[in-house]
């Protein structure tokens, strides 16, 4: 029995190490000097350096590689687009979810299905018509266009997730508030909303991740001014001149840092989020 217990502990530790390894390895690489990165056998111990991080934000790559572009701007773009679109999606999404939860309007199930199905479409299939549309409307490489797009991306998800939260809270309190003369909107805003605060937080963080991580649409629709981090990452990785892994690893480390923090905070909502509110974590 004791042996079995020990085996289980060993297994759990091994599994955790295995899953953490790819991330740890990149973070380690970010602190390595060039010579330590390219050695075989791979080095686990080395003298750390911050050079790679410093080089992300400076314009002077010695070999004139693609890294000379300004990553500070890309990070800012990623953050701006993420927060802007998630804010809009949360505002309209919670309103829509409340409506879907409280008013049994005609064709509600069909409407909800249509909303969800837009989120299930393969991105590659949608990107062609959206590309044509944006070109016609001159929305290419604009913050407005990208914010609209990401809002539309996050809306179905926010609506489905928030609806499952609204469905759980009793409607009697709102009804009582309305009896006392408050309007429907006031009942929503003052009574229902505070009860689903944690749900909103969860939905917001998961949508932030979606947007922060999005690649395909950004690669087709952004240009130099609106470029986001994943695009710049991919470009550096597929550059002709060979990859500066130290710098790339440093960028990645900064790029995934907020995500790791979110992962630690988010456990509770992740399952619910990834299954569109159908499974309560």
């Amino acid at each position: 029995m004791n042996l079995k217990k020990m085996l289980r502990v060993v297994l759990i530790v091994a599994v955790s190490a295995l899953y953490a390894f790819p991330v740890l390895w990149v973070v380690l690489t970010a602190f390595k000097e060039r010579i330590d990165i390219f050695t075989q056998p791979p080095k686990l111990f080395f003298t750390p350096t911050l050079d790679n991080f410093a080089s992300i934000f400076s314009d002077s790559a010695s070999d004139g590689s693609a890294f000379s572009s300004d990553f500070g701007r890309y990070f800012l773009n990623s953050a701006l687009l993420s927060f802007g679109s998630v804010f809009t999606a949360i505002v309209f999404g919670t309103m829509g979810a409340y409506a879907a939860s409280r008013f049994p309007f005609k064709n509600r199930d069909f409407a909800m299905f249509s909303i969800l199905s837009t989120r299930m479409l393969p991105a590659v299939a949608v990107v062609i018509p959206v590309y044509l549309l944006y070109r016609t409307l001159n929305l290419m490489n604009t913050y407005l266009g990208m914010t609209l797009l990401y809002t539309a991306f996050n809306l179905p998800f926010v609506i489905w997730m928030m609806r499952s939260f609204f469905d759980e809270i009793p409607r009697e309190i709102e009804e009582a508030a309305m009896m006392d003369g408050s309007s429907r909107f006031r009942a929503f805003y003052r009574v229902a909303l505070p009860q689903v605060k944690s749900g909103i937080a969860g939905a917001a963080v998961i949508s932030l991740l979606f947007t922060w991580n999005e690649f395909l649409f950004a690669s087709m629709l952004t240009g130099e001014e609106t470029r986001t981090v994943p695009i710049a990452l991919a470009q550096t990785l597929q550059g002709e001149r060979g990859v500066d892994w130290g710098k790339l690893a440093a960028i990645e480390t900064l790029y995934i840092l907020p995500v790791l923090i979110a992962a630690a905070l988010l456990q509770k909502y992740l399952l619910r989020g990834l299954t569109f509110g159908t499974v309560k974590g």
């Binding site: 790819p22 991330v23 390895w25 991580n213 690649f215 991919a234 990645e252 790029y255 995500v259 992962a263």
Partner: peptide, 14 residues
């Protein structure tokens, strides 16, 4: 759960 929250682009690069 950390891996599934990361960008596929980042994971691919790892």
């Amino acid at each position: 759960i950390a891996p599934m929250m990361m960008a596929p682009v980042a994971a691919g690069a790892f």
